[in-house]
Deep mutational scan, measured.
Amino acid sequence: MLEGKVKWFNSEKGFGFIEVEGQDDVFVHFSAIQGEGFKTLEEGQAVSAEIVEGNRGPQAANVTKEA
Score class of each variant (00 low, 15 high):
M1L: 12
M1P: 11
M1W: 13
M1N: 09
M1K: 15
M1T: 12
M1C: 12
M1Q: 11
M1A: 10
M1F: 13
L2Y: 11
L2M: 11
E3S: 14
E3W: 15
E3I: 15
E3P: 13
E3G: 10
E3L: 15
E3C: 15
G4P: 01
G4H: 02
G4Y: 07
G4K: 01
G4D: 00
G4M: 06
G4R: 03
K5F: 11
K5S: 07
K5Y: 11
K5A: 04
K5N: 06
K5M: 08
K5I: 13
K5D: 00
V6E: 00
V6F: 03
V6C: 07
V6S: 01
V6T: 02
K7H: 04
K7Q: 03
K7C: 08
K7N: 03
W8M: 01
W8P: 01
W8A: 00
F9Q: 00
F9Y: 09
F9D: 00
F9A: 00
F9G: 00
F9R: 00
F9E: 00
N10R: 06
N10A: 07
N10Y: 05
N10G: 02
N10T: 05
N10I: 06
S11T: 11
S11G: 09
S11R: 15
S11I: 10
S11H: 13
S11M: 10
S11N: 10
E12I: 14
E12W: 13
E12N: 12
E12Q: 14
K13I: 07
K13L: 10
G14R: 03
G14Q: 02
G14F: 04
G14M: 03
G14T: 03
F15R: 00
F15W: 14
F15N: 02
F15Q: 01
F15M: 05
G16M: 04
G16T: 03
G16N: 01
G16D: 00
F17S: 01
F17I: 07
F17N: 00
F17G: 00
I18L: 09
I18F: 02
I18W: 02
I18T: 00
E19M: 13
E19Y: 11
E19A: 14
E19L: 12
V20I: 14
V20G: 02
E21P: 13
E21F: 12
G22V: 03
G22Q: 04
G22H: 06
G22I: 03
Q23W: 14
Q23N: 09
Q23Y: 15
D24N: 12
D24M: 12
D24F: 11
D25Y: 07
D25S: 07
D25M: 08
D25Q: 06
D25W: 10
V26S: 01
V26W: 04
V26D: 00
V26F: 05
F27K: 02
F27H: 02
F27A: 00
V28E: 03
V28C: 07
V28I: 08
V28K: 01
V28M: 05
H29Y: 07
H29C: 09
H29W: 08
H29S: 03
H29K: 04
F30I: 06
F30N: 02
F30C: 08
F30Q: 03
F30G: 01
F30M: 06
S31W: 09
S31I: 04
S31F: 07
S31D: 04
S31A: 06
A32W: 07
A32P: 02
A32T: 06
I33A: 02
I33H: 02
I33F: 04
I33W: 04
I33L: 07
I33S: 03
I33V: 08
I33M: 04
Q34I: 14
Q34F: 09
Q34R: 10
Q34H: 09
Q34D: 08
G35I: 07
G35V: 09
G35M: 13
G35T: 09
G35L: 07
E36T: 12
E36S: 13
E36C: 14
G37F: 06
F38A: 06
F38H: 07
F38C: 10
F38R: 06
F38Q: 05
K39D: 03
K39G: 04
T40F: 12
T40I: 09
T40S: 10
T40D: 05
T40N: 08
T40V: 08
T40R: 08
L41C: 06
L41V: 03
L41F: 05
L41P: 02
L41D: 02
E42W: 13
E42C: 15
E42V: 14
E42P: 03
E43T: 15
E43Q: 15
E43F: 12
E43M: 14
G44H: 06
G44C: 09
G44P: 02
G44M: 04
Q45M: 11
Q45R: 07
A46C: 15
A46Q: 13
A46I: 14
A46P: 10
A46V: 13
A46L: 14
A46W: 15
A46N: 11
A46S: 11
V47R: 01
V47A: 03
V47N: 01
V47K: 02
V47Q: 01
V47F: 04
V47M: 03
V47G: 03
V47E: 00
S48H: 13
S48V: 12
S48F: 14
S48Y: 14
A49Y: 15
A49S: 06
A49R: 02
E50G: 08
E50Q: 14
E50D: 10
E50A: 11
I51D: 01
I51R: 08
I51A: 03
I51T: 04
V52A: 08
V52Y: 10
V52E: 07
V52G: 05
E53H: 14
E53C: 15
E53W: 15
E53P: 12
E53N: 13
G54T: 14
G54A: 06
G54R: 08
G54V: 05
G54Y: 07
G54N: 06
G54E: 05
N55Y: 14
N55C: 15
N55K: 15
N55R: 15
N55S: 14
N55L: 14
R56A: 08
R56L: 09
G57T: 03
G57V: 04
G57F: 05
G57H: 05
G57C: 07
G57L: 04
G57K: 05
G57N: 04
G57A: 06
G57I: 04
P58V: 10
P58D: 04
Q59A: 08
Q59N: 04
Q59L: 08
Q59F: 13
Q59I: 10
Q59Y: 14
Q59R: 10
Q59S: 07
A60W: 03
A60K: 02
A60G: 05
A60Q: 01
A61T: 10
A61D: 06
A61V: 13
A61M: 12
N62H: 10
N62A: 09
N62Q: 09
N62Y: 11
V63Y: 00
V63K: 01
V63A: 02
V63E: 03
T64D: 06
T64C: 10
T64V: 14
K65V: 14
K65A: 10
K65E: 05
K65Q: 08
K65S: 09
E66D: 11
E66Y: 15
E66M: 15
E66H: 15
E66V: 15
E66K: 15
E66G: 14
A67K: 12
A67G: 12
A67R: 11
A67D: 11
A67W: 12
A67E: 11
